[in-house]
Write a protein that binds this DNA or RNA. Structure first.
Length: 442
DNA sequence: CCTGGAGTTGTCCTA
DNA sequence: TTAGGACAACTCCAG
């Protein structure tokens, strides 16, 4: 750009859509033409081990879709392959920037990144505007009467609903302001190969709400062979759907599903207030658990070779598709932490690597829940019986047969006997908690 | 400050 | 056969 027309910038991150996008709406409402940018962040890309990373493929496809929509409107997306700081240095040298608009991002890396960019822009006298977009209630918006954060879900959700139903939900029509993007000839759009990656196979349904499915969500969600869950998690992760659209549907269709959306905000709130949970047990009394952490056993779990069909089916679904049904996530997590006594952080890291819908706050919160170390967690003696769970939730073996090919010749001996593992886990947790066998404390 | 009720998702044993 | 309690008390939260 040689002309120094005054512009604003909207920086897409995990809000990859044009409709009902708060930060984008505010950018487009302003007096200056808006330059839409996306940065393939080298800091993040460097940490990805797999050249066929599924998330990157999803992001690339989503960003491409936005670009197509913008090109139709006579504009286009400016795509950078750089560190965020590098990208903004480049932008500042060629543009007269009035302000940069983004949506809040609450993860530790994102907070640090945005602090850095905000400081850089401040040094250039450029305003940095950030908006709430990815949640209904954030940070300190839902707190107890005494001003401290909730750590138990039910009272949190009660307060959340009370506050939510008192106000009218408003959508912003950012998509109607599309003509306020800067007019440019289309710029070349980098391929995945150009940024050092390859396209992965992903099979993600579009971000549409199936009202039939959602209305019976509470009765079908636990059966992994059924299409009983929304499959919208990945869209929530990358903002290819607006949370307000989903919550509105949930409020009228199914309270159980609304609760799941509230769980998402609960764990985001927990991560915001207690960022140490990323590395540490929420409840420190569990720090003394002596995890067995057997690497060979961990690899068997990863590969889906535990000898428990429901566990193995789940892990194979994850490995093959980057997705695992929610019920099965609980079963495999309970198995890893309780039956094998492997540190929840190992399982959490594996999910983080494999899950297309990976969300730090939910992944961490739910792993700590399964391990019993989290806020409002399952009690330590609650140990899923993988045989019983399979009988209950996959009675026809449909899910198991789907993910264990040639189930007829599946002959893996269970790597640990259930009753034995159960007693061993309870003993390990009781030992950590300082309980002594055979003595009732009072 | 005190009090009492409640707490995502289970399992197992006993009467 | 099945329903109900034990598992472990403890902390959280609202009134």
């Amino acid at each position: 750009m040689t002309n120094r027309e005054r512009v604003s910038i909207f920086w897409f991150r995990r809000d990859l859509r044009l409709n009902d996008n708060h930060g984008l709406f505010h950018a487009l409402k302003g007096p200056d033409p808006v330059v839409p940018i996306f940065i393939f962040d080298k800091n993040i890309l460097e940490s990805l081990g797999d050249p066929k990373d599924r998330r990157l493929t999803f992001i690339h496809q989503s960003v491409e879709r936005i670009n197509r929509q913008l090109v139709k409107a006579g504009s286009c997306l400016w795509v950078h392959h750089d560190t965020p700081l590098g990208a903004f240095q480049t932008l500042c040298s060629s543009l007269d920037i009035a302000g940069v608009f983004v949506n809040h991002d609450y993860e530790p890396y994102a907070i640090q990144r945005d602090d850095q960019i905000a400081a850089f822009l401040r040094s250039k006298k450029i305003a940095f505007h950030s908006f709430k977009d990815q949640v209904i209630f954030e940070k300190r918006e839902i707190e107890k009467a005494d001003g401290t954060p909730y750590t138990v879900f039910t009272p949190y959700s009660n307060r959340w609903k009370e506050k939510f139903f008192r106000h009218k939900l408003t959508f912003c029509q950012s998509e109607k302001l599309i003509s306020n993007f800067i007019k440019t000839a289309p710029l070349p759009f980098p391929s995945l190969t150009k940024i050092g990656f390859q396209s992965a196979q992903i099979d993600t349904p579009p971000p549409t709400i199936d009202a039939q499915l959602i209305s019976r969500y509470d009765t079908t969600r636990d059966f992994p062979a059924k299409e009983g869950t929304s499959k919208l998690s990945v869209h929530l992760r990358f903002g290819t759907v607006s949370i307000r659209t989903l919550v509105k549907a949930a409020a009228s269709l199914n309270e159980q599903w609304l609760n799941e959306l509230i769980w998402r905000e609960f764990f985001m709130m927990i991560l915001f207030h207690f960022p140490f949970v990323v590395k540490e047990n929420f409840k420190s009394q569990y720090n003394k658990i002596r995890w067995r952490n057997n690497e060979l056993e961990f690899r068997k779990w990863c590969k889906g070779e535990t000898g428990y069909p429901i566990v193995d089916a789940g892990m194979r679904q994850l490995n093959e598709t980057g997705f695992m049904h929610n019920r099965v996530r609980m079963i495999v997590a309970s198995f890893l932490t309780k039956h094998l006594l492997i540190d929840w952080r190992w399982g959490e890291a594996y999910f983080a690597e494999k899950l297309l819908d990976y969300e730090l706050s939910s992944n961490n919160g739910n792993w700590q829940w399964a391990a019993g170390t989290g806020c409002d967690a399952a009690p330590y003696f609650r140990i899923f019986n993988p045989v019983e769970q399979a009988r209950k939730f996959d009675p026809g073996l449909d899910y198991i047969r789907k993910w264990i090919k040639n189930f007829g010749s599946y002959r893996i001996k269970p790597m640990v006997e259930h009753q034995f593992a159960r007693k061993r886990a309870i003993a390990a947790y009781e030992q950590a908690l300082g309980k002594q066998k055979g003595r009732k404390n009072r």
